[in-house]
């Protein structure tokens, strides 16, 4: 078990730095949070109008309470699993600072991940918990009983952690694109739209035409938002639940492998600009 101490000693520093960074940039933090909340309210009002227009209490298998829950949960999961690694990495590659990570006796992905985890711990404490409590209070008043289920919640937490690791490696691979491209920012926007669409952030995947929805559910993006949200809402049970976890893990392995391959390639050929 010596390696645990080693990991803690080597990467703990990155994590603390990440947490301090998150505290220092309180404005950014708050800004994104308010921005995301606004977006949730836009979606909430749209769905409310849709339910009123349809004149029925169940729209494609979702009640208005389900839908409200879905909108807020999907966005909080999107928010928690969103990582800055693309930008961080792209900037380091462009400015040549990436060499500082290469000459240290640490893994590039692990050091980035450790920095981010610090940031995520702070974020979870200040944003995730209050939103969660708000969502549960809303659900209590909408349904008239406590629908909170501790097992589903634990399943959700495990699934969100898997989502985060998956998102992290996907972003890392996008960040590596900076080895070839300058306009990583444009690519990030593209990546953002694709994730939002295929992950179920914008529209629950269940709303797509049958076959399309089934296909989308197999893609890695679904594992990033749709899966944890459906677990929280109790719509995945038993075998489906295990299958969902399995899919998340398989995609993580695939993405780690791709990231490692690109990195090995880059290490051999990298010519740093500037010094």
């Amino acid at each position: 078990m010596k390696w645990i101490g080693h990991v803690k000693r080597v990467y703990g520093g990155f994590t603390r730095a990440g947490a301090q960074g998150a505290m220092a940039y309180k404005f950014n933090f708050l800004g994104f949070f308010v921005g995301e909340s606004l977006y949730c309210f836009v979606m909430y009002f749209i769905w409310k109008a849709v339910f009123e227009a349809s004149g029925e209490s169940i729209f494609m298998g979702f009640t208005i309470t389900d839908m409200t829950l879905y909108v807020f949960l999907a966005n909080i999961v999107g928010f928690l699993t969103n990582t800055d690694s693309t930008q961080m990495l792209a900037e380091e590659i462009r400015e040549g600072n990436i060499i500082m990570r290469m000459i240290k006796p640490v893994n590039v992905d692990m050091s980035l991940l450790a920095t981010e985890i610090g940031d995520k711990v702070v974020m979870s404490a200040f944003i995730f918990l209050p939103v969660m409590i708000g969502v549960e209070i809303y659900r209590y008043f909408a349904l008239g009983y406590v629908a909170f289920n501790i097992l589903m919640f634990l399943g959700f937490v495990v699934s969100v952690i898997l989502s985060y690791i998956l998102a992290f490696y996907l972003n890392l691979i996008f960040g590596y694109l900076a080895f070839w491209l300058m306009n990583i920012w444009g690519f990030s926007i593209l990546k953002g739209s694709i994730i939002k669409f295929f992950s179920g952030s914008l529209i629950p995947l269940a709303f797509f035409p049958d076959i399309v929805g089934k296909i989308f559910e197999q893609l890695p993006f679904a594992s990033m938002v749709y899966t944890p949200v459906m677990i929280y809402m109790g719509k995945l049970q038993g075998m489906d639940l295990l299958l969902a976890f399995g899919k998340q893990i398989i995609w993580i392995i695939v993405f780690i492998a791709i990231a490692k391959l690109i990195w090995r390639w880059a290490e051999k050929r990298l010519a740093v600009q500037g010094g």
Binding site: I46, L181, N183, G186, F187, S193, L202, I203
Partner: peptide, 24 residues
């Protein structure tokens, strides 16, 4: 290439929203 990436990105973002409206 960067320009095409950027312009395509904004285009794709809009298309997903149109799909959203169409599904509704």
């Amino acid at each position: 290439v960067d320009f095409l990436t950027g312009a395509t990105s904004f285009l794709v973002g809009q298309i997903t929203n149109i799909v959203f409206i169409s599904i509704i």
